[in-house]
Every structure is written in C-alpha cells, then in structure tokens.
C-alpha cells in the first residue's frame, strides 16, 4: 500500500497573498498602463493612442526639467545623508546606558508624519516669524524660501536631511554592532590605526546594510511628495517641482490621464532600473 503523497491543502494558505498582491499592485498598475495608451475626453470614452503619450512625455521640456530637479535633489541628499549617517553611527557609543538614549533620539524624526514635517519646517523657516528664517535674516543673509529658489532648495534639502539621516544612522549602527569583538582585538594587535579600522573592518562589514540604506533613501527621495508639497508647494515658480509633484499637477490639476499614465510608467521604470543596476553591481563580489 502507498501513503498519500503530498498535501495539496497548502495552496490555500497562499491564496490571501495572491489576492492582496492582485489588488495592491497588479490591478492599479494595469489601470495605469491602460490610461497611458489611450486618450479620454471624459464620459468614460477612450481612444487607442499607442505610444503617443510616451513620445510626447519623453520629448517634453517640462518632464525633462522636473526629472533633472529630481535627480539633483536625490543625489544631493544621498551625498549628504549616507556619509553623515555613517559618521554619526561611528561616533555613537557601542555599549552602556547611552546607547539606548542615542537610539531613541535618533529615531524621533522618523516617528513624525510627513505632512507634519512639512508643516513644521514651513513655520520654522518663515523669514518673519520662523526661528530659522528669522535667525538667518538677522545674520544678514537674505533668506526667503517662499520667494527665492536657492533658499527653497536649501530648506527642502535641510528638511530631508533632518528627517531621514536617522534611518541611515540606525541601519549603519545595526551593521556596526554585528561586528565581532575579535575583529577589533585583532586590528589593535596588528597595529592598525583608527582610520584603518574604519576603512578595512567597519566599512566592509557595513557594506550590506549601507546598500539597503542607499536603496531605501534613493527610492524614498525619488518619490518624495508630501514634505516639499506642504513646505513650498513646488515653488517658488517651479523651482522645487519634483517629478511626483509635477505628476500630480498633470494628473489631477490638468486631468490629463494619458500623459500622467505615461509619466507614471516611465517614473516607475527609472526607479526599478536604477535599483536593479545598483544592486547587481554592488553585489557582484558577494555572489562568489
């Protein structure tokens, strides 16, 4: 006699995930794809347009400008937040009661909702009554983020660094705490300088978490919407109109669903491609 082979009931356990993914990702994405290849004049009437919207978006100066702003913004905050976060993590205590104090302090900005962060910095930076704005102006620096593009950029970047460097710090700290004590002992005995310890032990051992930190910060900052929207509303003029802000303007302001669908898909592909490229390139050595 033969015992019944495999239990097929297990498939039911996967069902909720399949449903969730369908509603969460597949169906919305398909809707966007659907819009991006059609023209609509309302009343639920659609015309097939093929890749027209894609061509139009790729040739539009407006899209190119907001994409450049987006790339510039993301590069600047990555260049600041990653080294700054690592530096803070390296200078944090590793043992003792101060560890938890530091960690809690670090986590505070992460707990504040995006729109509140925007509102906070909005008020904080106002040139007439905000602490930052008033202080800068009284130092003789002409600062007004509502009027002046450079001030606006400065504020948006400062806000993001304030809000998100902590994430890099926490990840880097987790990476640091997983380094066995023996590595430090060995390095001391080998006569390594403090910089050599950072360069040859701590940075290599943090590599994996830093890749994660980089990916998270890249994706989040590339899709940033709420904070600059609340702070500057994309202005002055279009100075801080990043991709997502522009996309919302196209989709909801102008109700151009076709071009908005095309922008969304191009946007999505840029993020996907960059993450994939970055991940494969950095993980190439690890695969062996």
């Amino acid at each position: 006699m033969t015992v019944k082979l495999t239990n097929q009931k297990a498939w039911f356990l996967v069902a909720p995930v399949v449903v969730l993914v369908a509603f969460n990702a597949v169906i919305p994405l398909m809707t966007v794809v659907n819009y991006s290849v059609q023209e609509s004049f309302g009343n639920n009437i659609f015309f097939w347009e093929g890749v027209k919207w894609f061509e139009e978006v790729l040739h539009s100066e407006r899209f190119a400008a907001s994409l450049m702003r987006q790339i510039f913004f993301t590069s600047v905050i990555l260049l600041i937040e990653i080294p700054f976060g690592v530096a803070i993590a390296l200078s944090m205590p590793r043992k003792g009661p101060w560890v938890s104090v530091c960690l809690v302090l670090m986590a505070l900005p992460l707990l504040i909702p995006w729109n509140v962060v925007g509102a906070m910095w909005n008020i904080f930076s106002l040139p007439d009554i905000g602490l930052l704005g008033k202080a800068l102006n009284s130092l003789g620096i002409g600062y007004d983020y509502t009027q002046e593009p450079i001030s606006a950029w400065f504020t948006v970047i400062l806000m993001d660094v304030w809000h998100w460097t902590s994430l890099v710090v926490l990840l880097a700290f987790a990476g640091l705490s997983s380094i066995p004590e023996a590595y430090y002992h060995a390095a001391k005995i080998d006569g390594a300088s403090p910089w050599a310890i950072v360069r040859y032990i701590e940075l290599p051992k943090m590599k994996r978490v830093l890749i994660i930190a980089f990916l998270l910060r890249f994706m989040d900052s590339f899709m940033i919407y709420t904070e600059p929207f609340v702070l500057t509303g994309g202005g002055p003029g279009n100075a801080t109109t990043f991709l997502s802000i522009d996309l919302v303007k196209v989709a909801l302001g102008q109700f151009d669903l076709g071009p908005a669908g095309a922008i969304s898909l191009i946007y999505f592909l840029i993020i996907l491609l960059t993450c994939w490229l970055f991940y494969t390139l950095t993980m190439k050595d690890e695969a062996q």
């Binding site: 066995p180 023996a182 590595y183 002992h185 060995a186 001391k188 005995i189 006569g191 040859y200 032990i201 290599p204 051992k205």
Partner: peptide, 17 residues
C-alpha cells in the same frame, strides 16, 4: 594590547575582507 608587542590568533577567522 597594542603596546605589548604580541600577536594573537582567535577562535574564529578574522580577515580583512
């Protein structure tokens, strides 16, 4: 330790990756 002029080999390998 760093001023004692000794060398030490640990239980688990310590290499500079």
């Amino acid at each position: 330790p760093e001023r004692r002029n000794i060398a030490q080999v640990f239980q688990f390998p310590v290499v500079y990756d």
